[in-house]
Design a binder for these strands. Structure first.
Lengths: 205, 205
DNA sequence: AATAATATCCCCCAATTTGGGGGATTTTAA
DNA sequence: TTAAAATCCCCCAAATTGGGGGATATTATT
Protein backbone atom coordinates (compact mmCIF):
# COMPACT_ATOMS: atom_id res chain seq x y z
CA UNK A 1 0.00 0.00 0.00
CA UNK A 2 1.43 3.36 -1.00
CA UNK A 3 1.36 6.03 1.66
CA UNK A 4 0.34 9.58 0.79
CA UNK A 5 0.38 12.80 2.83
CA UNK A 6 -1.32 16.07 1.97
CA UNK A 7 -0.22 19.52 3.12
CA UNK A 8 -2.79 22.13 2.14
CA UNK A 9 -4.37 24.85 4.25
CA UNK A 10 -7.75 24.96 2.55
CA UNK A 11 -9.88 22.42 4.41
CA UNK A 12 -12.20 21.69 1.51
CA UNK A 13 -9.41 21.15 -0.99
CA UNK A 14 -7.40 19.07 1.45
CA UNK A 15 -10.21 16.74 2.41
CA UNK A 16 -11.35 16.55 -1.19
CA UNK A 17 -7.92 15.36 -2.26
CA UNK A 18 -7.82 12.92 0.63
CA UNK A 19 -11.14 11.34 -0.29
CA UNK A 20 -10.19 11.13 -3.93
CA UNK A 21 -6.84 9.53 -3.25
CA UNK A 22 -8.18 7.16 -0.62
CA UNK A 23 -10.70 5.92 -3.17
CA UNK A 24 -7.84 4.50 -5.21
CA UNK A 25 -7.00 0.95 -4.21
CA UNK A 26 -3.26 1.16 -4.05
CA UNK A 27 -3.20 4.49 -2.15
CA UNK A 28 -3.67 5.22 1.51
CA UNK A 29 -3.77 8.77 2.87
CA UNK A 30 -1.76 8.55 6.08
CA UNK A 31 -1.81 12.22 7.04
CA UNK A 32 -3.43 15.50 6.11
CA UNK A 33 -2.03 18.76 7.44
CA UNK A 34 -2.88 22.42 7.14
CA UNK A 35 0.66 23.62 7.83
CA UNK A 36 4.23 22.47 7.29
CA UNK A 37 4.96 22.91 10.99
CA UNK A 38 2.32 20.36 11.88
CA UNK A 39 3.42 18.02 9.12
CA UNK A 40 7.07 18.14 10.09
CA UNK A 41 6.20 17.10 13.65
CA UNK A 42 4.25 14.06 12.52
CA UNK A 43 5.92 12.95 9.30
CA UNK A 44 8.45 10.60 10.89
CA UNK A 45 5.52 8.43 11.99
CA UNK A 46 3.62 8.72 8.72
CA UNK A 47 6.62 7.72 6.59
CA UNK A 48 4.81 8.64 3.37
CA UNK A 49 5.96 7.71 -0.11
CA UNK A 50 4.49 10.82 -1.65
CA UNK A 51 3.56 14.24 -0.28
CA UNK A 52 1.20 16.61 -2.04
CA UNK A 53 2.32 20.09 -1.11
CA UNK A 54 0.63 23.45 -1.51
CA UNK A 55 2.90 26.48 -1.87
CA UNK A 56 0.89 29.22 -0.23
CA UNK A 57 0.69 28.17 3.39
CA UNK A 58 0.50 30.08 6.66
CA UNK A 59 3.84 30.04 8.45
CA UNK A 60 6.47 28.00 6.61
CA UNK A 61 5.58 28.02 2.91
CA UNK A 62 5.70 25.03 0.63
CA UNK A 63 9.16 25.79 -0.76
CA UNK A 64 10.90 26.11 2.58
CA UNK A 65 8.74 23.23 3.83
CA UNK A 66 10.00 20.99 1.02
CA UNK A 67 13.60 21.76 1.94
CA UNK A 68 13.02 20.82 5.56
CA UNK A 69 11.00 17.73 4.83
CA UNK A 70 13.63 16.46 2.39
CA UNK A 71 16.17 16.69 5.20
CA UNK A 72 13.97 14.54 7.41
CA UNK A 73 12.89 12.08 4.72
CA UNK A 74 15.33 12.23 1.80
CA UNK A 75 13.51 9.49 -0.11
CA UNK A 76 10.06 11.05 -0.08
CA UNK A 77 8.56 12.27 -3.35
CA UNK A 78 7.14 15.76 -3.04
CA UNK A 79 4.66 16.94 -5.65
CA UNK A 80 3.91 20.63 -5.50
CA UNK A 81 0.32 21.46 -6.36
CA UNK A 82 -0.39 25.11 -6.88
CA UNK A 83 -2.15 27.76 -8.92
CA UNK A 84 1.14 29.56 -9.62
CA UNK A 85 2.86 29.04 -12.94
CA UNK A 86 5.41 31.68 -12.08
CA UNK A 87 8.76 30.41 -13.33
CA UNK A 88 10.65 31.59 -10.25
CA UNK A 89 8.47 29.45 -8.02
CA UNK A 90 8.81 26.41 -10.22
CA UNK A 91 12.59 26.46 -10.08
CA UNK A 92 12.62 27.26 -6.39
CA UNK A 93 10.38 24.28 -5.75
CA UNK A 94 12.56 21.95 -7.79
CA UNK A 95 15.69 23.24 -6.07
CA UNK A 96 13.98 22.66 -2.75
CA UNK A 97 13.60 19.00 -3.60
CA UNK A 98 10.18 18.66 -5.22
CA UNK A 99 10.12 15.95 -7.87
CA UNK A 100 6.97 17.22 -9.53
CA UNK A 101 4.99 20.39 -10.08
CA UNK A 102 1.41 20.38 -11.21
CA UNK A 103 -1.22 23.08 -11.36
CA UNK A 104 -4.41 22.88 -9.33
CA UNK A 105 -6.70 22.80 -12.34
CA UNK A 106 -5.34 19.36 -13.26
CA UNK A 107 -8.12 16.80 -13.68
CA UNK A 108 -8.39 14.20 -10.96
CA UNK A 109 -7.33 11.31 -13.15
CA UNK A 110 -4.09 13.08 -14.03
CA UNK A 111 -3.50 13.85 -10.37
CA UNK A 112 -3.71 10.16 -9.59
CA UNK A 113 -1.43 9.38 -12.54
CA UNK A 114 1.01 11.97 -11.26
CA UNK A 115 1.24 10.28 -7.89
CA UNK A 116 1.85 6.94 -9.55
CA UNK A 117 4.49 8.51 -11.78
CA UNK A 118 6.27 10.09 -8.81
CA UNK A 119 6.33 6.76 -7.04
CA UNK A 120 7.78 5.05 -10.09
CA UNK A 121 10.75 7.40 -10.24
CA UNK A 122 9.22 9.91 -12.61
CA UNK A 123 8.76 13.64 -12.42
CA UNK A 124 5.14 14.57 -12.99
CA UNK A 125 4.74 18.06 -14.39
CA UNK A 126 2.00 20.00 -16.14
CA UNK A 127 3.00 20.30 -19.76
CA UNK A 128 3.72 24.03 -19.77
CA UNK A 129 5.79 23.61 -16.60
CA UNK A 130 7.80 20.83 -18.23
CA UNK A 131 8.42 23.08 -21.20
CA UNK A 132 9.66 25.87 -18.94
CA UNK A 133 12.05 23.45 -17.29
CA UNK A 134 13.36 22.16 -20.59
CA UNK A 135 13.73 25.65 -22.01
CA UNK A 136 15.85 26.63 -19.04
CA UNK A 137 18.60 24.52 -20.58
CA UNK A 138 18.52 26.28 -23.90
CA UNK A 139 20.67 29.24 -24.71
CA UNK A 140 19.55 32.43 -26.36
CA UNK A 141 20.62 32.14 -29.99
CA UNK A 142 20.35 35.90 -30.43
CA UNK A 143 23.64 36.36 -28.67
CA UNK A 144 25.78 39.25 -29.84
CA UNK A 145 28.86 37.19 -28.95
CA UNK A 146 30.82 35.06 -31.37
CA UNK A 147 31.29 31.42 -30.47
CA UNK A 148 34.86 32.05 -29.37
CA UNK A 149 33.78 34.91 -27.16
CA UNK A 150 31.04 32.77 -25.67
CA UNK A 151 33.59 30.08 -24.98
CA UNK A 152 35.90 32.54 -23.25
CA UNK A 153 33.08 33.98 -21.18
CA UNK A 154 31.96 30.52 -20.15
CA UNK A 155 35.40 29.74 -18.80
CA UNK A 156 35.58 33.13 -17.14
CA UNK A 157 32.28 32.32 -15.46
CA UNK A 158 33.86 29.19 -14.03
CA UNK A 159 36.37 31.32 -12.18
CA UNK A 160 39.26 30.70 -14.55
CA UNK A 161 41.90 33.39 -14.98
CA UNK A 162 43.05 34.75 -18.33
CA UNK A 163 46.14 32.57 -18.06
CA UNK A 164 44.19 29.38 -17.46
CA UNK A 165 41.70 30.19 -20.20
CA UNK A 166 44.56 30.76 -22.61
CA UNK A 167 46.04 27.39 -21.73
CA UNK A 168 42.75 25.56 -22.08
CA UNK A 169 41.98 27.08 -25.46
CA UNK A 170 45.58 26.78 -26.69
CA UNK A 171 45.78 30.47 -27.44
CA UNK A 172 47.87 33.33 -26.12
CA UNK A 173 46.89 35.21 -22.99
CA UNK A 174 46.77 38.40 -25.00
CA UNK A 175 44.19 36.85 -27.28
CA UNK A 176 42.01 36.08 -24.30
CA UNK A 177 42.34 39.69 -23.19
CA UNK A 178 41.39 40.79 -26.64
CA UNK A 179 38.26 38.63 -26.63
CA UNK A 180 37.31 39.91 -23.21
CA UNK A 181 37.72 43.50 -24.32
CA UNK A 182 35.31 42.79 -27.16
CA UNK A 183 32.89 41.00 -24.85
CA UNK A 184 32.86 43.98 -22.50
CA UNK A 185 32.22 46.33 -25.38
CA UNK A 186 29.40 44.23 -26.82
CA UNK A 187 27.72 43.76 -23.46
CA UNK A 188 28.42 47.34 -22.42
CA UNK A 189 30.06 46.33 -19.15
CA UNK A 190 33.35 47.02 -17.45
CA UNK A 191 34.10 43.99 -15.33
CA UNK A 192 34.06 40.23 -15.18
CA UNK A 193 31.17 40.11 -12.74
CA UNK A 194 28.98 42.42 -14.78
CA UNK A 195 29.70 40.47 -17.95
CA UNK A 196 28.86 37.15 -16.33
CA UNK A 197 25.71 38.54 -14.75
CA UNK A 198 24.45 40.04 -17.98
CA UNK A 199 25.34 36.95 -19.98
CA UNK A 200 23.61 34.65 -17.51
CA UNK A 201 20.50 36.80 -17.37
CA UNK A 202 20.25 36.80 -21.15
CA UNK A 203 21.31 33.18 -21.40
CA UNK A 204 24.23 33.99 -23.69
CA UNK A 205 26.18 31.40 -21.70
CA UNK B 1 -3.02 19.02 -40.30
CA UNK B 2 0.10 18.73 -38.20
CA UNK B 3 3.31 18.18 -40.09
CA UNK B 4 5.87 15.67 -38.86
CA UNK B 5 9.42 14.86 -39.99
CA UNK B 6 11.50 11.87 -39.03
CA UNK B 7 15.29 11.73 -38.99
CA UNK B 8 16.48 8.17 -38.35
CA UNK B 9 19.09 6.16 -40.19
CA UNK B 10 17.55 2.73 -39.68
CA UNK B 11 15.21 2.23 -42.64
CA UNK B 12 12.89 -0.19 -40.87
CA UNK B 13 12.48 1.98 -37.79
CA UNK B 14 12.06 5.13 -39.84
CA UNK B 15 9.41 3.76 -42.16
CA UNK B 16 7.70 2.04 -39.24
CA UNK B 17 7.39 5.36 -37.40
CA UNK B 18 6.18 7.03 -40.57
CA UNK B 19 3.41 4.49 -41.14
CA UNK B 20 2.35 4.64 -37.52
CA UNK B 21 2.21 8.43 -37.42
CA UNK B 22 0.52 8.73 -40.79
CA UNK B 23 -2.21 6.44 -39.52
CA UNK B 24 -3.23 9.12 -37.04
CA UNK B 25 -5.81 11.49 -38.48
CA UNK B 26 -4.36 14.79 -37.38
CA UNK B 27 -0.76 13.92 -38.38
CA UNK B 28 0.93 13.99 -41.75
CA UNK B 29 4.49 12.77 -42.25
CA UNK B 30 5.99 15.34 -44.61
CA UNK B 31 9.53 14.06 -44.70
CA UNK B 32 11.66 11.10 -43.66
CA UNK B 33 15.44 11.33 -43.72
CA UNK B 34 18.32 9.05 -42.90
CA UNK B 35 20.75 11.88 -42.14
CA UNK B 36 20.69 15.40 -40.77
CA UNK B 37 22.51 16.67 -43.84
CA UNK B 38 19.69 15.51 -46.08
CA UNK B 39 17.05 16.84 -43.68
CA UNK B 40 18.64 20.25 -43.40
CA UNK B 41 18.59 20.64 -47.16
CA UNK B 42 14.89 19.88 -47.42
CA UNK B 43 13.38 21.12 -44.17
CA UNK B 44 12.60 24.66 -45.35
CA UNK B 45 10.11 23.14 -47.77
CA UNK B 46 8.71 20.62 -45.29
CA UNK B 47 8.09 23.25 -42.58
CA UNK B 48 7.29 20.58 -40.00
CA UNK B 49 5.71 21.24 -36.62
CA UNK B 50 7.52 18.34 -34.98
CA UNK B 51 10.71 16.46 -35.81
CA UNK B 52 11.49 13.04 -34.43
CA UNK B 53 15.26 12.85 -34.16
CA UNK B 54 17.57 9.93 -33.60
CA UNK B 55 20.89 10.66 -31.88
CA UNK B 56 23.23 8.13 -33.44
CA UNK B 57 23.40 9.15 -37.06
CA UNK B 58 26.08 8.92 -39.71
CA UNK B 59 27.70 12.31 -40.30
CA UNK B 60 26.13 15.06 -38.22
CA UNK B 61 24.67 13.46 -35.11
CA UNK B 62 21.29 14.27 -33.60
CA UNK B 63 22.64 16.73 -31.05
CA UNK B 64 24.54 18.88 -33.51
CA UNK B 65 21.71 18.38 -35.96
CA UNK B 66 19.20 19.78 -33.47
CA UNK B 67 21.33 22.88 -32.99
CA UNK B 68 21.49 23.52 -36.71
CA UNK B 69 17.84 22.80 -37.38
CA UNK B 70 16.77 25.11 -34.56
CA UNK B 71 18.69 27.88 -36.29
CA UNK B 72 16.78 27.27 -39.51
CA UNK B 73 13.38 26.69 -37.88
CA UNK B 74 13.37 28.19 -34.38
CA UNK B 75 9.72 27.26 -33.80
CA UNK B 76 10.02 23.57 -34.60
CA UNK B 77 9.55 21.03 -31.80
CA UNK B 78 12.31 18.45 -31.79
CA UNK B 79 11.73 15.21 -29.92
CA UNK B 80 14.82 13.10 -29.49
CA UNK B 81 14.12 9.38 -29.67
CA UNK B 82 17.00 7.17 -28.62
CA UNK B 83 18.14 4.11 -26.74
CA UNK B 84 20.56 6.17 -24.65
CA UNK B 85 19.58 7.18 -21.13
CA UNK B 86 23.04 8.59 -20.53
CA UNK B 87 22.58 11.82 -18.60
CA UNK B 88 25.23 13.69 -20.57
CA UNK B 89 23.35 13.09 -23.80
CA UNK B 90 20.03 14.12 -22.31
CA UNK B 91 21.33 17.50 -21.22
CA UNK B 92 23.24 18.01 -24.44
CA UNK B 93 20.06 17.33 -26.40
CA UNK B 94 18.03 19.76 -24.32
CA UNK B 95 20.74 22.41 -24.61
CA UNK B 96 20.76 21.85 -28.36
CA UNK B 97 17.10 22.78 -28.50
CA UNK B 98 15.17 19.53 -28.18
CA UNK B 99 11.89 19.99 -26.35
CA UNK B 100 11.46 16.32 -25.53
CA UNK B 101 13.50 13.17 -24.99
CA UNK B 102 11.97 9.73 -25.08
CA UNK B 103 13.48 6.29 -25.21
CA UNK B 104 12.94 3.97 -28.14
CA UNK B 105 11.15 1.32 -26.12
CA UNK B 106 8.23 3.69 -25.58
CA UNK B 107 4.91 2.14 -26.66
CA UNK B 108 3.40 3.53 -29.82
CA UNK B 109 0.44 5.14 -28.07
CA UNK B 110 2.78 7.15 -25.84
CA UNK B 111 4.84 8.16 -28.85
CA UNK B 112 1.72 9.61 -30.46
CA UNK B 113 0.82 11.32 -27.18
CA UNK B 114 4.33 12.75 -27.00
CA UNK B 115 3.99 14.34 -30.40
CA UNK B 116 0.67 15.86 -29.40
CA UNK B 117 2.19 17.09 -26.17
CA UNK B 118 5.14 18.70 -27.97
CA UNK B 119 2.76 20.46 -30.30
CA UNK B 120 0.69 21.77 -27.42
CA UNK B 121 3.69 23.45 -25.81
CA UNK B 122 4.68 20.58 -23.56
CA UNK B 123 7.94 18.72 -23.09
CA UNK B 124 7.41 14.99 -23.52
CA UNK B 125 9.95 12.94 -21.60
CA UNK B 126 10.23 9.37 -20.43
CA UNK B 127 9.66 9.35 -16.71
CA UNK B 128 13.20 8.50 -15.68
CA UNK B 129 14.52 11.19 -18.01
CA UNK B 130 12.16 13.73 -16.48
CA UNK B 131 13.40 12.76 -13.05
CA UNK B 132 17.02 13.23 -14.12
CA UNK B 133 16.17 16.67 -15.41
CA UNK B 134 14.37 17.64 -12.22
CA UNK B 135 17.15 16.28 -10.03
CA UNK B 136 19.65 18.42 -11.88
CA UNK B 137 18.16 21.39 -10.05
CA UNK B 138 18.68 19.91 -6.63
CA UNK B 139 21.75 20.50 -4.57
CA UNK B 140 23.74 17.91 -2.74
CA UNK B 141 22.71 18.20 0.88
CA UNK B 142 25.85 16.37 2.00
CA UNK B 143 27.84 19.53 1.52
CA UNK B 144 30.77 20.06 3.88
CA UNK B 145 30.16 23.81 3.58
CA UNK B 146 28.15 25.88 6.01
CA UNK B 147 25.30 27.93 4.59
CA UNK B 148 27.36 31.09 4.83
CA UNK B 149 30.26 29.47 3.02
CA UNK B 150 27.91 28.21 0.33
CA UNK B 151 26.54 31.69 -0.06
CA UNK B 152 30.02 33.15 -0.43
CA UNK B 153 31.04 30.51 -2.94
CA UNK B 154 27.89 31.08 -4.96
CA UNK B 155 28.73 34.76 -5.30
CA UNK B 156 32.35 33.94 -6.09
CA UNK B 157 31.09 31.66 -8.84
CA UNK B 158 29.24 34.61 -10.34
CA UNK B 159 32.53 36.41 -10.81
CA UNK B 160 32.14 38.74 -7.85
CA UNK B 161 35.26 39.95 -6.05
CA UNK B 162 35.82 39.73 -2.30
CA UNK B 163 34.92 43.41 -2.04
CA UNK B 164 31.64 43.04 -3.88
CA UNK B 165 30.71 39.91 -1.94
CA UNK B 166 31.41 41.72 1.32
CA UNK B 167 29.13 44.57 0.26
CA UNK B 168 26.32 42.27 -0.82
CA UNK B 169 26.42 40.26 2.40
CA UNK B 170 26.92 43.33 4.59
CA UNK B 171 30.07 41.88 6.12
CA UNK B 172 33.70 42.90 6.13
CA UNK B 173 36.03 41.96 3.30
CA UNK B 174 38.24 40.15 5.79
CA UNK B 175 35.30 37.98 6.77
CA UNK B 176 34.84 36.99 3.17
CA UNK B 177 38.52 36.09 3.00
CA UNK B 178 38.13 34.05 6.11
CA UNK B 179 35.19 32.12 4.69
CA UNK B 180 37.08 31.51 1.49
CA UNK B 181 40.09 30.21 3.38
CA UNK B 182 37.80 27.73 5.11
CA UNK B 183 36.15 26.78 1.84
CA UNK B 184 39.53 26.09 0.27
CA UNK B 185 40.54 23.96 3.24
CA UNK B 186 37.31 21.97 3.26
CA UNK B 187 37.37 21.38 -0.49
CA UNK B 188 41.13 20.81 -0.49
CA UNK B 189 41.76 23.36 -3.20
CA UNK B 190 43.98 26.41 -3.60
CA UNK B 191 42.17 28.72 -5.95
CA UNK B 192 38.84 30.21 -6.88
CA UNK B 193 38.58 28.22 -10.09
CA UNK B 194 39.29 24.90 -8.40
CA UNK B 195 36.79 25.62 -5.65
CA UNK B 196 34.05 26.53 -8.12
CA UNK B 197 34.79 23.52 -10.27
CA UNK B 198 34.71 21.10 -7.36
CA UNK B 199 31.60 22.69 -5.88
CA UNK B 200 29.76 22.58 -9.18
CA UNK B 201 30.75 19.00 -9.85
CA UNK B 202 29.50 17.95 -6.41
CA UNK B 203 26.52 20.26 -6.60
CA UNK B 204 27.45 22.07 -3.39
CA UNK B 205 26.39 25.26 -5.14
C1' DA C 1 28.25 24.22 31.87
C1' DA C 2 31.76 23.14 28.76
C1' DT C 3 33.26 22.29 24.14
C1' DA C 4 33.25 22.82 19.41
C1' DA C 5 31.83 24.98 15.37
C1' DT C 6 30.59 29.09 13.04
C1' DA C 7 30.74 33.81 11.84
C1' DT C 8 32.85 37.82 12.36
C1' DC C 9 36.99 41.04 12.03
C1' DC C 10 42.18 42.42 11.86
C1' DC C 11 47.27 42.80 10.03
C1' DC C 12 51.12 41.77 6.75
C1' DC C 13 52.98 40.66 2.19
C1' DA C 14 54.05 39.24 -2.55
C1' DA C 15 52.45 37.46 -6.79
C1' DT C 16 48.90 37.55 -9.93
C1' DT C 17 45.04 39.37 -12.16
C1' DT C 18 42.44 42.77 -14.21
C1' DG C 19 41.03 46.62 -17.08
C1' DG C 20 42.21 50.22 -20.16
C1' DG C 21 45.00 52.25 -23.71
C1' DG C 22 47.40 51.68 -27.99
C1' DG C 23 48.33 48.68 -31.87
C1' DA C 24 49.21 44.49 -35.82
C1' DT C 25 48.42 40.26 -38.64
C1' DT C 26 46.09 36.32 -40.47
C1' DT C 27 42.07 33.62 -41.27
C1' DT C 28 37.27 33.22 -42.33
C1' DA C 29 32.93 34.65 -44.01
C1' DA C 30 29.67 37.54 -46.50
C1' DT D 1 36.78 42.02 -51.90
C1' DT D 2 35.45 44.07 -48.09
C1' DA D 3 34.18 43.13 -43.19
C1' DA D 4 34.32 40.48 -39.29
C1' DA D 5 36.63 37.35 -36.38
C1' DA D 6 40.57 35.41 -34.25
C1' DT D 7 45.04 35.79 -33.20
C1' DC D 8 49.09 38.16 -30.97
C1' DC D 9 51.94 42.24 -28.95
C1' DC D 10 53.36 46.25 -25.59
C1' DC D 11 52.63 49.49 -21.63
C1' DC D 12 50.79 50.68 -17.09
C1' DA D 13 48.39 51.22 -12.63
C1' DA D 14 44.94 49.58 -9.61
C1' DA D 15 42.74 45.78 -7.73
C1' DT D 16 42.52 41.06 -6.57
C1' DT D 17 44.09 36.90 -4.73
C1' DG D 18 46.19 33.56 -1.69
C1' DG D 19 48.85 32.51 2.27
C1' DG D 20 50.52 33.44 6.85
C1' DG D 21 49.48 34.88 11.43
C1' DG D 22 45.95 36.01 14.69
C1' DA D 23 41.28 37.58 17.84
C1' DT D 24 36.40 37.68 19.49
C1' DA D 25 31.52 36.88 19.81
C1' DT D 26 27.71 34.01 18.78
C1' DT D 27 25.60 29.53 18.19
C1' DA D 28 24.93 24.91 18.57
C1' DT D 29 25.77 20.43 20.68
C1' DT D 30 26.85 17.58 24.07
Amino acid sequence: MNRICIIEDNDVVREGFALLIDSVNEFEVVGTYATCEEAIRKLKDDIPDVILMDIELPGINGIEGSTRIKKLLPEVNIIVITVHENSELVFEALCAGACGYITKNTEYSRLIDSIKEAMNGGAPMSSNIARMVVESFQKNQNTPLTSRETQVLELLSKGKSYTVIADELFIHKETVKSHIKNIYFKLQVHSKAEAIEKALKNKFI
